[in-house]
């Protein structure tokens, strides 16, 4: 039986994430934990997160988890969700600027204000609701999910990774931006698979079965 650790650093809706994983992983033990030892002995790691970047980084720091996460990425399948994606980048504009983990070189930026679509219509911020996600490249975590299937988003900041080669999913909302990035044993998304109904559960199912290769 595999063990999946959901990192609990006091931010965000961990119950939804852990229940959604339990729903698709029959043969897995899902642990919601802040214990570095339990996290580093798990077969897979999920890093969710909500709230402000500064609070998330502070909470990760307080739980002594920054080094743990940095060291574990690349060693076993890791899924970052929403703020769990943003904290992987180098720096975020949120909270007047905050340094993040620099696992994925790049910036987290706020949507422009006003944000306009291609026809000049104003778009609301936060970007909240169901937007189509375009598969930039094939990836095992897109298995059985249609290109441009809608996922649930709730965010005001977006990721701009330096290396476009790491981008596996994109969305258009005023600008075109990365909503899923991948690397060795790493997949991280801006949207909430645990809140994205059938397609979200499929992505989690794909993660639970993923061998970590792209």
């Amino acid at each position: 039986m595999q063990r999946i650790a959901v990192i609990d650093y006091g931010m965000g809706n961990l119950r939804s994430v852990s229940k959604a994983i339990e729903c698709v992983a029959d043969n897995a033990e899902v642990l919601v934990t802040s214990d570095a030892k339990l996290i580093s002995t798990a077969d897979r790691i999920v890093c969710p997160g909500q709230g402000a970047a500064a609070d998330c980084m502070a909470a990760l720091n307080d739980a002594n988890l920054i080094n743990t996460v940095q060291e574990l990425i690349g060693t076993r399948p890791f899924l970052g969700i929403c703020m769990g994606l943003q904290v992987l980048l180098t720096h975020s504009e949120e909270n007047d600027g905050i340094d993040c983990m620099n696992v994925v070189p790049g910036q987290v930026k706020r949507f422009a204000s006003p944000l306009l679509d291609t026809s000049g219509q104003r778009l609301k911020v936060p970007h909240m609701g169901w937007s189509p996600v375009a598969h930039s490249v094939a990836h095992p975590l897109w298995d059985n999910i249609a290109d441009k299937a809608r996922f649930y988003f709730a965010h005001s900041y977006y990721c701009a990774p330096d290396d476009q080669g790491s981008v596996v999913g994109q969305c258009e909302y005023g600008i075109e931006f990365a909503v899923a990035i991948a690397g060795q044993q790493l997949f991280a998304c801006q949207f909430h698979p645990e809140k994205s109904a059938k397609d979200g559960l499929q992505l989690l199912r794909n993660f639970v079965a993923w061998n970590g290769k792209s």
């Binding site: 939804s16 229940k19 649930y152 809140k195 994205s196």
Partner: peptide, 8 residues
């Protein structure tokens, strides 16, 4: 509800 229904 959150244990079974995976929409916001």
């Amino acid at each position: 509800v959150a244990s079974e229904v995976f929409i916001p």
